[in-house]
Amino acid sequence: MRRFDEQVRSRTQAGRPAGRSRPAPVLLLGPILALSLALSPAPAAAVGDPLEPLNRGIFEFNRIVDGLVLEPASQIYEFAVPEPGRRGVSNFLGNLRAPVIFINHLLQGEREQAGITLGRFMINSTMGIFGIFDFATVVGFEPREEADFGQTLGVWGVGGGAYLVLPILGPSTIRDAGGLVVDGFIFDPWPYVSETETQLARRGTELVDARYRFGPTLDDLEVGSLDFYVAVRSAFLQNRAARIAKNGPMRNEAYESIFEEDFDDDFDDE
């Protein structure tokens, strides 16, 4: 459920003007953009779920894997490692993601966020001892906003395409799955300087860390839901749209039209 988990994390900036133009470095990433466009025939607003039967199957598979592996692993982790240690692991893994986030902020034209990401990375990698301690927060840095290449493509105007549940990684779209590949295999610098086994250990630890931190959120969602699959899909797609629009979540016509309806006249039967 790593993909979903990353989306639950918050943005701190709000109220930015809508519809400003963004320079898209199409020359640099032209082929990727073209591929994503080819894969996503649907416009951004109309993300459907044509793969629902397949998605539901993978969703159930993920829940089985979660119950057999991730949940027990996160419980053992919680039992064996005290909270300061878990905090350190989380910080360390988060710090490793900084280069990918930095590149994506730049590609989205988010200079201020890129600056925060870079500043935090430099301080935490040194004074924070390889990112184990979040020293940047102590010296007054704002929290970092997450960013990824699927989001960058969305900011550039690429639609999400079909909703897609990935094995183990969870909710995504065709566009975002492509973004994941670009982030993990092109933008991420660590595979270039370390061995495959090290990277596998990192990704495995990331899964356990994410399960530990966001498991309760997912459990809450399940308890309150009538159809857990739809609840996760709806939350993922809405959160994703808000993180791409970046102008607050309440500014779209489809949403507003829900509240135009007036039922007050036809419920007086008591």
């Binding site: 009538l226 159809d227 739809v230 959160n239």
Partner: peptide
């Protein structure tokens, strides 16, 4: 209150999607 939107996720929209699916 007629809707709560947490991190872009609207309660009304989420519930509508679930109810429609069922």
């Amino acid at each position: 209150i007629i809707d709560v939107i947490a991190e872009g996720v609207s309660l009304v929209v989420s519930q509508r999607n679930e109810v429609a699916s069922v």
